[in-house]
């Protein structure tokens, strides 16, 4: 197993010049391609509503004023490669526990970490749905791209912070 991991690591390094080729060459399992597809999720379509509280003083004391803004996440649609989940007989699940290193690497905010953990069941059932749907598509590159599109579509059903966290994690794992 360790030799295989080492071999795939070397292969992925060699193929980094052509990320699409790396996906085709290495990832052959639907679950792997689903994870690859996370980084291809176009979350530029996701708007994040933010509440802002301000306090003003009146004759009756302090009063809270709330207003809302929204920001559009503008991460580019990236085709990143090099992340490989080896086909195994184990059940692949996305973990809710994130290491401090990964949180830092993915630049996750505390609210994104919490949303990710609170939505881990939803994230995993979406992953399973995507994995099943892309398994019907021929060609690894096409399947990875389809996974990206499906993540984009289905992430709309997730809490926004969870979707952003998922994207950041997927991207960081492939860097």
């Amino acid at each position: 197993m360790k030799k295989l991991v080492a071999l795939l690591t070397i292969l992925s390094g060699l193929m980094m010049a052509n990320p699409a080729k790396a996906i085709v060459g290495i990832a052959s399992d639907s679950d792997a391609l689903v994870i690859t597809g996370i980084a291809m999720m176009d979350i530029s379509q996701i708007t994040v509503w933010e509440r802002h509280d301000r306090y003003g003083r009146t004759r009756r004391g302090y009063v809270r004023y709330s207003y809302y803004t929204y920001r559009v996440i503008t991460y580019p649609v990236l085709l990143l490669a090099g992340f490989v989940v080896l086909g195994d007989e184990g059940r692949v699940q996305i973990n809710s526990e994130l290491s401090a290193d990964l949180i830092k690497k993915a630049d996750l905010t505390s609210s994104e970490v919490k949303a990710f953990q609170d939505n881990i069941e939803e994230i995993n059932v979406i992953k399973d749905s995507i994995s099943s749907e892309i398994s019907k598509i021929e060609g690894s590159k096409e399947r990875a791209e389809a996974a990206g599109k499906l993540w984009t579509e289905y992430a709309q059903s997730l809490d926004q912070d969870a979707a952003v966290a998922l994207y950041k994690i997927g991207s960081s794992l492939q860097n």
Binding site: F83, V85, L86, V92, I94, N95, L98, L102, L173
Partner: peptide, 12 residues
């Protein structure tokens, strides 16, 4: 345990 990422688990 020997996998590439702690974001995934195949412990089964």
């Amino acid at each position: 345990s020997d996998r590439t990422s702690d974001a995934l688990s195949t412990a089964s």
